[in-house]
Amino acid sequence: MLINKTADILASEITPKEIYHQRRRFLQQAAAIAAAGATAGLLPYSSEAGQKITNVKKSPLSTADRLTSYKDITSYNNFYEFGTDKSDPARYAKNFRASPWTVSVEGEIKKPAKYQIEDLLKHFPLEERIYRLRCVEAWSMVVPWVGFALRDLIRRVEPNSRAKYVEFITLHDSEQMPGQKPGLFGAGLDWPYVEGLRLDEAMHPLTILAVGLYGELMPNQNGAPIRLVVPWKYGFKSIKSIVKIRFVEKQPLTTWFRSNPREYGFYSNVNPTVDHPRWSQASERRIGEDTLFSPKRKTLMFNGYADQVASLYTGMDLKKYF
Protein backbone atom coordinates (compact mmCIF):
# COMPACT_ATOMS: atom_id res chain seq x y z
CA MET A 1 0.00 0.00 0.00
CA LEU A 2 0.91 3.64 -0.21
CA ILE A 3 1.50 4.21 3.43
CA ASN A 4 4.62 3.01 5.08
CA LYS A 5 3.55 2.69 8.64
CA THR A 6 7.05 2.68 10.06
CA ALA A 7 8.23 5.75 8.18
CA ASP A 8 7.67 8.14 11.07
CA ILE A 9 9.96 6.26 13.40
CA LEU A 10 13.63 6.97 12.91
CA ALA A 11 15.77 3.87 12.63
CA SER A 12 18.05 5.19 15.35
CA GLU A 13 15.11 5.45 17.68
CA ILE A 14 13.98 1.88 17.49
CA THR A 15 16.12 0.14 20.06
CA PRO A 16 15.90 2.68 22.82
CA LYS A 17 12.16 2.96 22.23
CA GLU A 18 11.69 -0.76 22.64
CA ILE A 19 13.49 -0.77 25.94
CA TYR A 20 11.56 2.28 26.97
CA HIS A 21 8.27 0.54 26.20
CA GLN A 22 9.31 -2.53 28.11
CA ARG A 23 10.07 -0.46 31.16
CA ARG A 24 6.83 1.41 30.86
CA ARG A 25 4.92 -1.79 30.52
CA PHE A 26 6.57 -3.26 33.57
CA LEU A 27 5.87 -0.19 35.62
CA GLN A 28 2.29 -0.01 34.44
CA GLN A 29 1.62 -3.62 35.17
CA ALA A 30 3.14 -3.29 38.59
CA ALA A 31 1.05 -0.21 39.23
CA ALA A 32 -2.08 -1.88 37.92
CA ILE A 33 -1.61 -4.89 40.15
CA ALA A 34 -1.00 -2.66 43.13
CA ALA A 35 -3.99 -0.49 42.34
CA ALA A 36 -6.23 -3.47 41.76
CA GLY A 37 -5.21 -4.85 45.13
CA ALA A 38 -5.81 -1.55 46.85
CA THR A 39 -9.18 -0.76 45.36
CA ALA A 40 -10.65 -4.19 44.86
CA GLY A 41 -14.42 -3.92 44.93
CA LEU A 42 -14.37 -0.21 44.21
CA LEU A 43 -13.36 -0.51 40.57
CA PRO A 44 -16.07 0.55 38.19
CA TYR A 45 -14.91 -2.17 35.83
CA SER A 46 -14.70 -5.88 35.76
CA SER A 47 -14.77 -7.89 32.58
CA GLU A 48 -18.42 -8.59 31.90
CA ALA A 49 -20.18 -6.64 29.19
CA GLY A 50 -23.53 -5.43 30.45
CA GLN A 51 -22.28 -4.89 33.98
CA LYS A 52 -23.39 -1.69 35.69
CA ILE A 53 -20.90 1.18 35.74
CA THR A 54 -20.86 3.21 38.91
CA ASN A 55 -19.99 6.86 39.49
CA VAL A 56 -21.19 8.15 36.16
CA LYS A 57 -21.84 11.87 35.99
CA LYS A 58 -24.47 13.46 33.81
CA SER A 59 -23.26 15.83 31.13
CA PRO A 60 -24.61 19.17 29.92
CA LEU A 61 -23.53 18.07 26.44
CA SER A 62 -26.29 15.45 26.32
CA THR A 63 -29.24 15.89 24.01
CA ALA A 64 -32.84 15.88 25.23
CA ASP A 65 -33.96 13.70 22.29
CA ARG A 66 -35.84 10.56 23.22
CA LEU A 67 -33.55 7.59 23.76
CA THR A 68 -33.52 4.71 21.30
CA SER A 69 -34.33 1.46 23.09
CA TYR A 70 -31.55 -0.73 24.44
CA LYS A 71 -32.87 -3.54 22.26
CA ASP A 72 -32.61 -1.55 19.04
CA ILE A 73 -29.20 -0.13 19.94
CA THR A 74 -27.87 -3.62 20.60
CA SER A 75 -29.55 -5.53 17.77
CA TYR A 76 -29.21 -3.24 14.76
CA ASN A 77 -25.50 -2.73 14.25
CA ASN A 78 -23.00 -2.09 11.54
CA PHE A 79 -19.88 -3.85 12.73
CA TYR A 80 -18.54 -5.63 9.67
CA GLU A 81 -15.92 -7.47 11.71
CA PHE A 82 -18.79 -9.70 12.78
CA GLY A 83 -20.64 -9.78 9.46
CA THR A 84 -22.39 -7.34 7.18
CA ASP A 85 -25.97 -8.02 8.19
CA LYS A 86 -27.34 -5.72 10.88
CA SER A 87 -28.16 -8.70 13.07
CA ASP A 88 -24.74 -10.36 12.66
CA PRO A 89 -22.87 -8.44 15.37
CA ALA A 90 -25.36 -9.34 18.11
CA ARG A 91 -25.20 -12.95 17.00
CA TYR A 92 -21.49 -13.43 16.42
CA ALA A 93 -19.98 -11.12 19.04
CA LYS A 94 -21.42 -13.09 21.96
CA ASN A 95 -18.14 -14.75 22.89
CA PHE A 96 -15.89 -11.84 22.04
CA ARG A 97 -13.25 -11.38 24.73
CA ALA A 98 -13.22 -7.72 25.67
CA SER A 99 -11.07 -8.39 28.72
CA PRO A 100 -8.15 -8.37 29.21
CA TRP A 101 -7.73 -5.50 26.79
CA THR A 102 -4.82 -3.20 26.08
CA VAL A 103 -4.93 0.07 24.22
CA SER A 104 -1.58 1.14 22.88
CA VAL A 105 -1.14 4.90 22.60
CA GLU A 106 1.83 5.79 20.46
CA GLY A 107 3.31 7.96 17.72
CA GLU A 108 4.09 11.65 17.96
CA ILE A 109 3.66 12.00 21.71
CA LYS A 110 5.92 12.49 24.65
CA LYS A 111 4.38 9.76 26.76
CA PRO A 112 3.57 6.67 24.74
CA ALA A 113 1.92 4.00 26.83
CA LYS A 114 -0.03 0.81 26.81
CA TYR A 115 -3.15 1.17 28.91
CA GLN A 116 -5.11 -1.66 30.38
CA ILE A 117 -8.80 -0.96 29.96
CA GLU A 118 -9.20 -0.94 33.75
CA ASP A 119 -6.62 1.84 33.99
CA LEU A 120 -8.44 3.99 31.48
CA LEU A 121 -11.64 3.61 33.46
CA LYS A 122 -9.88 4.57 36.64
CA HIS A 123 -7.90 7.51 35.33
CA PHE A 124 -10.67 9.38 33.63
CA PRO A 125 -13.95 10.65 35.03
CA LEU A 126 -16.81 8.85 33.33
CA GLU A 127 -19.80 10.76 32.06
CA GLU A 128 -23.07 9.85 30.46
CA ARG A 129 -23.28 11.50 27.05
CA ILE A 130 -26.59 11.18 25.26
CA TYR A 131 -25.77 11.73 21.61
CA ARG A 132 -27.54 11.45 18.32
CA LEU A 133 -25.90 8.90 16.08
CA ARG A 134 -26.41 9.37 12.35
CA CYS A 135 -25.42 6.47 10.13
CA VAL A 136 -24.23 7.14 6.57
CA GLU A 137 -27.10 4.85 5.52
CA ALA A 138 -29.61 7.55 6.50
CA TRP A 139 -30.89 6.17 9.77
CA SER A 140 -30.27 7.52 13.24
CA MET A 141 -30.46 6.66 16.91
CA VAL A 142 -30.10 8.40 20.24
CA VAL A 143 -27.61 6.58 22.45
CA PRO A 144 -26.78 7.19 26.11
CA TRP A 145 -23.06 6.49 25.95
CA VAL A 146 -20.81 6.26 28.99
CA GLY A 147 -17.31 7.46 28.38
CA PHE A 148 -14.70 10.12 28.85
CA ALA A 149 -13.47 12.96 26.72
CA LEU A 150 -10.74 11.87 24.33
CA ARG A 151 -9.00 15.17 25.06
CA ASP A 152 -8.36 14.01 28.62
CA LEU A 153 -6.32 11.12 27.28
CA ILE A 154 -4.61 13.27 24.66
CA ARG A 155 -3.49 15.79 27.27
CA ARG A 156 -2.08 13.00 29.34
CA VAL A 157 0.13 11.60 26.56
CA GLU A 158 1.33 15.08 25.44
CA PRO A 159 1.37 15.21 21.64
CA ASN A 160 4.45 16.85 20.13
CA SER A 161 4.41 19.46 17.38
CA ARG A 162 4.38 16.85 14.61
CA ALA A 163 1.10 15.35 15.82
CA LYS A 164 -1.50 16.62 13.34
CA TYR A 165 -3.87 13.66 13.19
CA VAL A 166 -4.99 10.82 15.40
CA GLU A 167 -5.29 7.37 13.91
CA PHE A 168 -7.40 4.63 15.54
CA ILE A 169 -7.11 0.93 14.85
CA THR A 170 -9.54 -1.88 15.69
CA LEU A 171 -8.48 -5.30 16.91
CA HIS A 172 -7.41 -7.61 14.09
CA ASP A 173 -8.28 -11.14 15.15
CA SER A 174 -10.22 -13.20 12.64
CA GLU A 175 -10.60 -16.00 15.17
CA GLN A 176 -12.82 -13.73 17.24
CA MET A 177 -14.07 -11.56 14.44
CA PRO A 178 -15.34 -13.88 11.71
CA GLY A 179 -16.02 -10.99 9.34
CA GLN A 180 -12.27 -10.46 9.05
CA LYS A 181 -11.69 -13.93 7.67
CA PRO A 182 -10.33 -13.81 4.17
CA GLY A 183 -12.79 -15.27 1.73
CA LEU A 184 -14.17 -14.84 -1.71
CA PHE A 185 -14.72 -11.06 -1.87
CA GLY A 186 -15.32 -10.96 1.89
CA ALA A 187 -17.02 -7.89 3.26
CA GLY A 188 -15.11 -5.79 0.75
CA LEU A 189 -13.01 -4.02 3.39
CA ASP A 190 -9.36 -4.26 4.36
CA TRP A 191 -8.61 -5.22 7.96
CA PRO A 192 -7.89 -4.02 10.51
CA TYR A 193 -10.38 -1.19 10.47
CA VAL A 194 -8.68 2.20 10.60
CA GLU A 195 -10.22 5.57 11.39
CA GLY A 196 -8.82 9.01 11.96
CA LEU A 197 -9.49 12.51 13.14
CA ARG A 198 -7.70 15.79 12.83
CA LEU A 199 -6.07 16.62 16.16
CA ASP A 200 -8.45 19.52 16.79
CA GLU A 201 -11.42 17.26 16.10
CA ALA A 202 -10.01 14.72 18.51
CA MET A 203 -9.53 17.47 21.11
CA HIS A 204 -13.11 18.70 20.78
CA PRO A 205 -15.06 18.28 24.02
CA LEU A 206 -17.83 16.36 22.22
CA THR A 207 -15.43 13.64 21.11
CA ILE A 208 -15.40 10.77 23.57
CA LEU A 209 -14.02 7.33 24.07
CA ALA A 210 -17.05 5.33 25.14
CA VAL A 211 -16.83 2.30 27.40
CA GLY A 212 -20.51 1.64 27.90
CA LEU A 213 -24.09 2.56 27.18
CA TYR A 214 -27.28 2.69 29.20
CA GLY A 215 -25.12 2.78 32.31
CA GLU A 216 -23.57 -0.61 31.58
CA LEU A 217 -20.28 -1.77 30.19
CA MET A 218 -20.19 -1.74 26.40
CA PRO A 219 -22.01 -4.64 24.76
CA ASN A 220 -19.70 -6.55 22.44
CA GLN A 221 -21.72 -5.76 19.34
CA ASN A 222 -21.41 -2.03 20.01
CA GLY A 223 -17.62 -2.05 20.12
CA ALA A 224 -16.52 -3.41 23.48
CA PRO A 225 -14.60 -2.59 25.48
CA ILE A 226 -13.76 0.85 24.13
CA ARG A 227 -14.81 2.79 21.07
CA LEU A 228 -14.75 6.27 19.67
CA VAL A 229 -17.89 8.42 19.46
CA VAL A 230 -17.84 11.53 17.29
CA PRO A 231 -21.47 12.61 17.19
CA TRP A 232 -21.26 15.13 14.36
CA LYS A 233 -19.81 12.62 11.91
CA TYR A 234 -21.35 9.60 10.22
CA GLY A 235 -21.36 6.53 12.42
CA PHE A 236 -18.57 4.66 10.66
CA LYS A 237 -16.09 7.30 11.91
CA SER A 238 -16.79 6.14 15.45
CA ILE A 239 -14.45 3.16 15.34
CA LYS A 240 -15.09 0.21 17.65
CA SER A 241 -12.98 -2.14 19.79
CA ILE A 242 -9.90 0.07 19.64
CA VAL A 243 -6.47 -1.44 20.32
CA LYS A 244 -4.25 1.32 19.04
CA ILE A 245 -4.29 5.10 19.01
CA ARG A 246 -1.48 6.67 17.01
CA PHE A 247 -0.60 10.33 16.73
CA VAL A 248 0.66 11.03 13.23
CA GLU A 249 1.75 13.85 10.98
CA LYS A 250 -0.15 12.83 7.84
CA GLN A 251 -3.84 12.26 7.32
CA PRO A 252 -4.54 8.59 8.04
CA LEU A 253 -5.76 6.35 5.25
CA THR A 254 -9.09 5.32 6.72
CA THR A 255 -10.86 2.06 5.89
CA TRP A 256 -13.97 3.30 4.12
CA PHE A 257 -12.02 5.95 2.27
CA ARG A 258 -9.65 3.27 1.02
CA SER A 259 -12.59 1.08 0.02
CA ASN A 260 -14.32 3.84 -1.94
CA PRO A 261 -12.76 7.32 -1.86
CA ARG A 262 -15.52 8.79 -4.02
CA GLU A 263 -18.20 7.85 -1.50
CA TYR A 264 -16.55 8.06 1.91
CA GLY A 265 -14.37 11.05 2.65
CA PHE A 266 -11.93 11.44 5.49
CA TYR A 267 -14.10 14.03 7.22
CA SER A 268 -17.53 12.44 6.72
CA ASN A 269 -19.27 15.15 8.68
CA VAL A 270 -23.02 14.74 8.75
CA ASN A 271 -24.15 17.15 6.05
CA PRO A 272 -27.66 17.19 4.57
CA THR A 273 -26.45 19.27 1.62
CA VAL A 274 -23.80 16.81 0.46
CA ASP A 275 -25.39 13.58 -0.71
CA HIS A 276 -23.80 10.21 -0.75
CA PRO A 277 -23.21 9.56 -4.47
CA ARG A 278 -25.87 6.86 -4.35
CA TRP A 279 -28.45 8.21 -1.93
CA SER A 280 -29.71 11.39 -0.35
CA GLN A 281 -28.44 12.56 3.03
CA ALA A 282 -31.12 15.24 3.39
CA SER A 283 -33.30 13.19 5.71
CA GLU A 284 -33.11 10.22 8.00
CA ARG A 285 -35.15 7.52 9.66
CA ARG A 286 -35.05 7.61 13.46
CA ILE A 287 -34.85 4.00 14.59
CA GLY A 288 -37.65 2.84 16.86
CA GLU A 289 -39.44 6.15 17.00
CA ASP A 290 -41.22 6.47 13.69
CA THR A 291 -44.15 4.31 12.69
CA LEU A 292 -44.37 2.65 9.30
CA PHE A 293 -46.21 5.62 7.89
CA SER A 294 -44.46 8.60 9.41
CA PRO A 295 -42.23 10.67 7.19
CA LYS A 296 -38.47 10.80 7.63
CA ARG A 297 -37.01 13.61 9.67
CA LYS A 298 -34.74 16.27 8.22
CA THR A 299 -31.07 15.66 8.83
CA LEU A 300 -29.39 18.53 10.64
CA MET A 301 -26.06 20.10 9.70
CA PHE A 302 -23.31 18.38 11.68
CA ASN A 303 -26.06 16.16 13.06
CA GLY A 304 -27.39 19.07 15.10
CA TYR A 305 -24.01 19.90 16.66
CA ALA A 306 -23.24 22.81 14.34
CA ASP A 307 -23.12 25.37 17.18
CA GLN A 308 -20.32 23.44 18.82
CA VAL A 309 -18.30 22.19 15.86
CA ALA A 310 -18.87 24.39 12.81
CA SER A 311 -15.92 26.57 13.78
CA LEU A 312 -13.60 23.60 13.22
CA TYR A 313 -14.27 23.88 9.51
CA THR A 314 -14.33 27.62 8.94
CA GLY A 315 -13.28 28.43 5.40
CA MET A 316 -13.32 24.81 4.28
CA ASP A 317 -15.25 23.73 1.22
CA LEU A 318 -17.33 20.96 2.77
CA LYS A 319 -18.39 19.68 -0.64
CA LYS A 320 -14.76 19.07 -1.47
CA TYR A 321 -13.75 17.85 1.97
CA PHE A 322 -16.79 15.66 2.51
Binding site: Y76, S87, L292
Partner: peptide
Protein backbone atom coordinates in the same frame (compact mmCIF):
# COMPACT_ATOMS: atom_id res chain seq x y z
CA UNK B 1 -44.21 -10.35 11.08
CA UNK B 2 -45.63 -6.88 10.50
CA UNK B 3 -48.70 -7.57 12.60
CA UNK B 4 -46.53 -9.03 15.35
CA UNK B 5 -44.18 -6.06 15.33
CA UNK B 6 -41.32 -8.32 14.34
CA UNK B 7 -39.70 -6.35 11.54
CA UNK B 8 -36.61 -5.39 13.53
CA UNK B 9 -35.25 -1.96 14.32
CA UNK B 10 -35.80 -0.57 10.85
CA UNK B 11 -39.16 -1.98 9.68
CA UNK B 12 -39.34 0.00 6.45
CA UNK B 13 -35.93 -1.17 5.35
CA UNK B 14 -36.90 -4.73 6.26
CA UNK B 15 -40.07 -4.57 4.17
Amino acid sequence: RTVNNDLGANPIETL
